[in-house]
C-alpha cells in the first residue's frame, strides 16, 4: 500500500518536472522570438523558471491536451477554411444584392467540456458563415450568415478535426443529456 502511494508520488513529481521543463523551453522560445534573438538572457534565465513554476502551481491540470503530431493536419484544415471564410464574406459584401439569409441555430456540442469546446467556439467564428453566440450547458447557439449553406455539416466536420487534435471522443449528436 505504502509502496504504491510512494510510486504514485514519484510519478506525479516526475510528470511535474517534465511539464516544468517543457514550459521553460516554450517560454525561452517565446523570449527568443520577442527579442528577435538579440539577448537579455540573464533576465530571461531568472524570470522563466519562476513563471513556469508559478503557472504550473496556480493553474489546474488540464484534462485535454493538444497532440503536437496532429497539429500540421489541423493547421492545413484551418488555413483552408480561413481562406474560404474570407472569400465568402468578401463576395457577399461586394455583391450589390447583399445575399444574406441569417439565422440563429442551436446544436448540441459533441466534444467534451473544457478546452475542446472552447476551441470549437473560437474556430467556428473564423469559419465560413458561422459565429458562436452562446453556450448553454452543452447546447451551442450560433449565428449563421446564410442558412442555405451546409453550416451544420461544416460544424460537425470541425468538431471531428478538433477531436482528432485533442485525441478525445465525441458523443453522438443528439444524445446529450438535458
Amino acid at each position: 500500500m505504502r509502496t504504491t502511494a510512494a510510486t504514485g508520488q514519484a510519478i506525479v513529481s516526475s510528470r511535474f518536472w517534465t511539464r516544468f521543463a517543457a514550459r521553460c523551453s516554450a517560454l525561452a522560445g517565446l523570449w527568443w522570438i520577442l527579442t528577435e534573438g538579440s539577448g537579455g538572457w540573464g533576465f530571461a534565465a531568472t524570470v522563466i523558471p519562476l513563471i513556469a513554476w508559478l503557472g504550473l502551481r496556480s493553474a489546474p491540470a488540464r484534462a485535454h491536451r493538444i497532440r503536437p503530431s496532429r497539429l500540421p493536419v489541423f493547421i492545413v484544415f484551418f488555413l483552408h477554411q480561413s481562406l474560404r471564410a474570407g472569400v465568402d464574406v468578401a463576395a457577399r459584401t461586394l455583391k450589390p444584392s447583399l445575399p444574406l439569409q441569417p439565422a440563429l441555430l442551436r446544436v448540441p456540442v459533441a466534444l467534451p467540456a473544457g478546452a475542446p469546446t472552447w476551441w470549437l467556439m473560437l474556430i467556428i467564428s473564423l469559419l465560413p458563415g458561422t459565429l458562436s453566440v452562446r453556450l448553454e450547458g452543452r447546447m451551442l447557439e450560433f449565428h449563421c450568415l446564410d442558412d442555405r449553406l451546409a453550416v451544420e455539416r461544416d460544424l460537425r466536420h470541425t468538431e471531428a478535426r478538433i477531436a482528432d487534435l485533442f485525441g478525445c471522443d465525441r458523443k453522438r449528436p443528439g444524445v446529450s443529456a438535458p
Binding site: 471564410a85 464574406v89 461586394l94 444574406l100
Partner: peptide, 29 residues
C-alpha cells in the same frame, strides 16, 4: 477594406461581426 465595407453595409450586429472577423483574419494572414 472589404471587411470595413461589410461593417457599414451589413444590416445588424451579428452579420457585421462576421464581416470583420473573417475578412480581417484572411487579410492579416
Amino acid at each position: 477594406i472589404i471587411g470595413s465595407i461589410g461593417l457599414i453595409r451589413f444590416p445588424d450586429v451579428y452579420t457585421r461581426i462576421h464581416a470583420l472577423t473573417k475578412a480581417d483574419n484572411l487579410g492579416l494572414g
